[in-house]
């Protein structure tokens, strides 16, 4: 592994800077040209997010040396990214679903709506009792 030749880090840095300029310029151009709808979406997605992915690849491959590691190291990293999606997938039903067969998601009740102030009339300790029982 010690025999590999390093690429010019300066070259990659300059390339990343150029890509950065493009990714900033893309949404700006969309604004200046007053693009709307699908064209705007595609342009912004490609220039901002698409270029960001390319930049991330170069940082990982060269600055984090993944291109010169044994093949298992990038695979481990990729599997971590895959697990991120597993986690999102597993929690999606909780996060995105607001009604079900046997239960309902009650709207968030803020403390002031619960009428705690009303209980305060009876003294401080009754306030504590009720906040312990109300969910």
């Amino acid at each position: 592994m010690a025999s590999h030749s390093h690429p010019s880090y300066l070259k990659i840095y300059i390339m990343l800077l150029v890509l950065f300029v493009i990714s900033v310029a893309g949404p700006e151009i969309a604004d200046i040209m007053k693009l709307e709808g699908a064209t705007r979406l595609i342009l912004v997605l490609i220039t901002a997010f698409g270029i960001a992915l390319v930049k991330a690849y170069y940082v990982l491959a060269y600055f984090m040396h993944l291109k010169f590691e044994k093949i298992y190291a990038p695979y481990i990293l990729l599997s971590m990214v895959a697990l991120l999606f597993v986690f999102f997938f597993g929690t999606a039903t909780d996060a995105m679903k607001s009604e079900g067969h046997n239960w309902e998601k009650t709207p968030i009740v803020l403390p002031e709506d619960k009428g705690f102030d009303h209980h305060d009339d009876h003294g401080d300790h009754s306030h504590d009792d009720h906040s312990g029982h109300d969910h």
């Binding site: 597993v86 597993g90 039903t93 909780d94 679903k97 239960w103």
Partner: peptide, 17 residues
Amino acid sequence: FFVWAHHQFISGVDPRA
């Protein structure tokens, strides 16, 4: 990595999950 919510069956996770 695909089994973790079996600890949460009664915690109010989605019944379909």
